[in-house]
Design a binder for these strands. Sequence first.
DNA 1: ATGTCC
Length: 473
Amino acid sequence: MENKRINGNDLMALGYKENHAMGVALKINKKRLGFSRDEMLANFKNVLENPESYVADKIFRPLAEVLLNIDSMARETIALKESPVSYTVYGEAQIEEGAKKQMDIAMTLPITVAGALMPDAHQGYGLPIGGVLATQNAIIPYGVGVDIGCRMALSVFDLPASYLEANHDKLKEILMSNTRFGAGKGYLKQERMDHAVLDNPLFKTHALIRSLKDKAWTQLGSSGGGNHFVEFGIMEFTEKDESLGVERGRYLALLSHSGSRGLGATIADHYTKLAKAICRLPYQAQNLAYLDLHTEEGQEYWLAMNLAGDYASACHEVIHEKIKRGLGAGLLAKIENHHNFAWKEQFEGEEVIVHRKGATPAGKDTMGIIPGSMATPGFLVRGKGEELAINSASHGAGRLMSRTQAIKTLADSDLKQMLRDHGITLLGAGMDEAPMAYKDIHTVMAAQVDLVDVVATFSPKIVRMADDGSRED
DNA sequence: ATGTCC
């Protein structure tokens, strides 16, 4: 523990306040400077006490300048509303304080029209995960999220549930040979697939996106890491669904969760930095920097975001197509939805930009998928179009524990027992994705009965995820 | 989320 990274609490113990100076100090702390933890703490203490002696220092000058207020003229910031616009919170009892605090700040932005917090909400960068924000003609890159276009896709096959038991090993093999997981992972040149999304003109006209084309091609049809998965399971319709045309019954189904890989991550990073440079907000709101959609930068982000969304969709399409072919099955229904994205929508009679960062679109009769965890059910839902929720619902159960907390406190034997109890085969994944690290999906669903109706239930059976964080390669 | 550095 002696060498653990210096954090905000350490700085506060030295006398720093939670403001811009702390942000600058933490940024300096992130660089690898060759100082020990104690040396670094001593430096931070000295700069705070004698900033004037650091104005020419190579490393600590930015911090000294902020402490001396030298740049206060240059960084005049955009004024926030005096009090947050009110918003509806669903499942409030299960939502951590940090997520509500972040939402409160988002509700003071001058561009904010309305907001809502979904029952799986937890703290993120800028807008909380599970946050929905409607703005006037402006887009917040961190309101969309780092994994632009992250989405769910579901294929319900014309095969009975019994097919799964009878062909367990074959399904395992299909899953293993048609998916690719892990940070940075993709397909080799001779393996990679073609897709119309790669013909998007931005791959020629936009310098940054042009430089990412080869990586995007390589990673097309891959899943990445973290909470992403591809899984076989049983889809249960307790009654016939007229609009889908699916009869009552239990079917083999494929569910996938992933986003726009390196392409979207690089786009998000680029435009977040650009937004922060253009849109100067007070310290507590800096991660909510936005781009005006009437500016060139705003329009550029909009196009790049849509490309990342199309790319994420293409990745799922490739995965589902390959696996359907491997099965030799037909399709009864196919549903998909983004849950990290922004849309132009009508809200109370005006056009707004609706940011959903970890939230499922749930307009009237809109179909969506809300996954539970590797050992708990997910749900095919139909939106009710609740305006108070800005036509949205949760995007899952939501984390109960942070990844580090889960790895530290959960027992491998408990996970194994739980998987056995539910008859689940797990391929890959670390303890940070254990079901115990997530909120109870049934509690979360109960908190949003006004937002969605459940159409059918998905029970995971063979789950493929990235091997755990330690990375064995 | 991402090959976790600007």
